[in-house]
Design a protein around this nucleic acid. Structure first.
Lengths: 203, 203
DNA sequence: GTGTAAATTTGCAATGGATGCAAATATGAT
DNA sequence: ATCATATTTGCATCCATTGCAAATTTACAC
């Protein structure tokens, strides 16, 4: 564990962090579309070209902690507690996926402001959904492998898709209504309960 | 409905259709990224600039029938059968959303080839998910209004999100495995059954 | 320290999508 | 034929993204 990082690595981390902070700040200040890569790199004091050796696209910088979040969620499934039911495990997965995560020496959480930004800018919304989708894919895969004998691939996909699909759509409505983070979270829980109980319980 | 369409309208429809056909053909022939707007407009015999007065972006042309599909689905909910259960109604909604639809004088269905294209090109996948998401939003809204007294907004969102989330994720896995359209559809049905029965039924 | 190999950054040119704008065309109605 | 309106087109421009080669920086051996 003795992370002996040389100057080279430290410098890269510092640059990455500067780009992320500059980008998020500018996006919130003047809007996503209205901010150019040139402005971000100027604020981070690197060349425009360098931005693309850290992020593959302008959207990517907003999701800089995406991979760390997914891996944290996968770990929850991998380290499942023997006695726990699948449903309880999945609820823990969703819960953890909202916790703060560390990346680029930055410990961050999905603040309401960042969510707002992602839901508002079309390009970010689309990319975010794509990442969410890939996340679901990986989670379903992990779920199937963690319970190889009890849960087949289709059941795993149905479980993840149903639970997260319900929670995501419901919380989106809640956020759009301008509800508080507590209310949004409560809405998500209720939606997941419905998914767990089954649609048959409605109407 | 005596649609007395003048030359002007007929011409616009013809152009729109030419653009759609040229674009889809070229995308399948040489790939989405590899095809330029210039090539599409050349094939449709209009100027590059004109493309953007028909579609707001290069991705959009692939989803030309999206709005017609959503409206058909909304209509199914609006014309709900009094005696039918919510679950049966939603199953019909999903079923119909796969039917052929007419737009720009073109009657089209979501062919495996087009789905393949959408799932493969990152830009199309993201845009497609964004459209799917917006569709779910509108369906949930319609569901709530159609059953104003029995289904509140959160229940509606949970129902739509759960059912479609499960079906979409499961069928994606199925398609990726190269299964036949019949197998894919069977997988979707099974996933929806799980969503209807509830996650509690797993594991 | 020096020198050298490897990693990074940078500048530059080019491609392609997207948009605003005004001139040129085409269409519909009188 | 003529006028008002709708469409198309050409152009200029902005910006994200990529390839490439030169310049700079860091790591490491001697």
């Amino acid at each position: 564990m003795g992370d002996v990082v040389g100057l080279r690595v430290r410098k890269k981390l510092r640059t990455r962090r500067a780009l992320i902070e500059a980008a998020l700040r500018l996006f919130e200040e003047k809007g996503y579309e209205e901010t150019t890569i040139a402005e971000i790199t100027a604020a981070a004091d690197v060349s425009t070209r360098t931005f693309f050796s850290y992020f593959t696209s302008k959207e990517d910088v907003v999701f800089f902690d995406g991979e760390a979040r997914v891996e944290a969620a996968l770990k929850v499934i991998a380290d499942r507690r023997p006695a726990e039911t699948v449903v309880d495990l999945l609820l823990r997965v969703v819960g953890h996926s909202l916790d703060a995560v560390t990346d680029a020496d930055l410990t961050v959480e999905l603040t309401p402001a960042r969510r707002q930004l992602i839901m508002t800018a079309p390009a970010l919304r689309a990319r975010g959904l794509d990442l969410l989708f890939e996340t679901q894919r990986r989670l379903a895969d992990a779920l199937h492998h963690a319970y190889a004998d009890e849960i087949d691939p289709v059941e795993a996909a149905a479980a993840i898709g149903s639970l997260m699909g319900a929670a995501y759509l419901a919380t989106t409505f809640s956020m759009e209504r301008g509800e508080t983070p507590e209310q949004v979270w409560a809405t998500g829980r209720r939606a997941m309960e419905i998914a767990i109980r089954g649609l048959g319980s409605i109407g």
